[in-house]
């Protein structure tokens, strides 16, 4: 038998139907804030990467300002960014972990506020690996805050990323642990 490779690269298949969003070509499928508003909105605005009809609406029902609408139940969420305050409640509520709040207001970095349900939980100030949509570490980032808005185990990690990584970083990994 010919020798088979024993390593599967994480990017062996990168396509929408293997679960990876292409931030270039799939933008029309997701909710992305308008750039001018985004640059100014303190606390950030939500990016919802929920490109498929799902009978699901906790983002809508949990949104305190009524910014997110899912009507009917299987619709793709629509965001009224004028109402979004970047509160991260949807980040912690979304069953698909598809909501990310991104704050672009700091001058020399941005903050990605992402859902986290893994162990261990990083501490504030800890430097973690920031992963892209295929789990590839793309940059290091400092954890600025760890919250748990819904008090149900889903943490929201605020991680500091360099400018330009806002639409790339979608997960973090605590260093040292395997």
């Amino acid at each position: 038998m010919s020798k088979l490779s024993n390593l599967i690269p994480p990017d062996e298949q990168v396509s929408f139907w293997s679960g990876v969003l292409d931030p270039e070509s799939n933008l029309d499928l997701i909710s992305v804030p308008p750039e001018d508003l985004w640059r100014e909105k303190r606390a950030g605005l939500v990016v919802i990467e929920c490109p498929q009809e799902i009978p699901c609406n906790p983002c809508h029902t949990s949104c305190p300002t009524g910014a997110i609408k899912v009507e009917p139940l299987t619709a793709i969420p629509k965001v009224n960014y004028d109402l979004c305050t970047g509160c991260t409640i949807c980040v912690s509520k979304c069953p698909g972990l598809a909501c990310f709040v991104i704050d672009k207001t700091p001058a020399d970095y941005s903050i990605v506020k992402l859902p986290y349900e893994m162990y261990p939980v990083p501490k504030v100030g800890e430097v973690v690996d920031c992963l892209d949509r295929t789990g590839k570490p793309v940059v290091e980032g400092e954890v600025l805050n760890v919250t748990e808005p819904s008090r149900d185990g889903t943490k929201v990690i605020w991680v500091k990323v360099p400018k330009g990584f806002e639409m790339t970083v979608r997960a973090i990994k605590v260093k040292g642990g395997e």
């Binding site: 690269p9 298949q13 679960g19 698909g96 598809a98 789990g135 997960a171």
Partner: peptide
């Protein structure tokens, strides 16, 4: 996955891909 696309909800796939798990169609 034997098919040419994931059978489950897309968001569930995205959740594991983010942690570096390849899905081979």
């Amino acid at each position: 996955e034997a098919m040419d696309r994931i059978g489950g909800w897309w968001v569930h796939a995205a959740k594991v891909r983010r942690y570096g798990v390849p899905i081979l169609l």
